[in-house]
């Protein structure tokens, strides 16, 4: 972390950037996002295993853009989001400085998005054993059981949209749930409304989700909505060998590869 702070101070004092988007200590010692604009405040930056919020969400926010060019403290989940956002032309190389941070809290500097992409080759976006176990449990259910499982899980949702707000990929100014001509998704947080909202959101994230769990961590109800996107990720890995966002291939589902399996077509 020492080298990250040093670099952050350098960037601010040389005015190479106007703000450092990082983590600082919040309530009860837990981390929260920080927007450091003065060199003196660089000391407030922290990094630890609890820093799971995906800071990339702030890169597309108008209020934060107004602060001027940012440098962003970027563990792997943030790096993946940056690559996906770059592919979707939401951010440009010249707009941000990326302060990569290794799992052992060392600074990695990147001269280009391509450099991030190659760094990420060592961090393939794969589901871990625990995630696979939960997925196997859900996939193993009969259709009725699975419907009951999701109905129960999603019945808690009250449509606060914290999951959407915390997701770096949910940057649309007007989300499909807010379209009312026609009204695609019922506004109410009842069974149908919740189910449609979550299926719609998962579909819009197919091949775009960076599996950072920001949505789940943001949810005040602790809903496992991230397993909807994980289910799709598992399929993408198994069937298409997908291992995370890249600058060239970009959106999994809008990219054609002649070698893709077609066994789902019956």
């Amino acid at each position: 972390m020492v080298d990250v702070k040093k670099k952050a101070a350098e960037l601010l004092s040389s005015e190479a950037v106007k703000v450092i988007i990082g983590y600082t200590e919040g309530t009860g010692g837990k981390p929260r996002a920080a927007f450091i604009q003065n060199v003196a405040d660089v000391e407030k930056l922290i990094f630890n295993s609890q820093c799971v919020m995906n800071l990339a969400v702030y890169l597309t926010k108008a209020e934060i853009k107004k602060l001027g060019k940012p440098a962003i403290v970027a563990p792997v989940n943030v790096l993946r989001a940056i690559i996906q956002l770059a592919f979707e032309v939401q951010i440009q190389e010249s707009d941000i400085v990326v302060l990569g941070i290794t799992p052992d809290e060392k600074l990695v500097e990147f001269q280009s998005f391509a450099a991030i992409e190659s760094y990420l080759e060592d961090f393939k976006m794969e589901l871990d054993a625990k995630e696979k176990e939960t997925l196997a449990k859900i996939s193993g259910m009969s259709l009725e059981e699975r419907w009951a499982y999701w109905t129960e899980e999603l019945s808690e949702c009250f449509k606060c949209y914290a999951c959407r707000a915390a997701c770096p990929m949910c940057y649309c100014h007007k989300c499909a749930v807010e379209q009312n001509k026609p009204q695609w998704i019922p506004v109410a947080a009842h069974q149908l409304g919740n189910m449609e909202w979550h299926i719609m959101r998962a579909m819009h994230l197919a091949g775009r989700c960076v599996n950072c769990d920001a949505c789940h961590n943001a949810c005040p109800k602790g809903i496992n909505l991230n397993f909807l996107t994980k289910l799709m990720l598992a399929d993408a890995q198994e069937q298409l060998g997908y291992t995370g966002p890249t600058l060239k291939e970009g959106n999994l589902l809008s990219t054609y590869n002649p070698n893709d399996q077609e066994n789902f077509i019956k």
Binding site: A33, Y58, K61, E63
Partner: peptide, 17 residues
């Protein structure tokens, strides 16, 4: 207000709880 709201991501959580 600007300083305090910087990290606010504009969800409905605070109002709903």
């Amino acid at each position: 207000w600007k300083e305090q709201a910087q990290r606010c991501i504009g969800c409905g959580t605070c109002a709903f709880v």
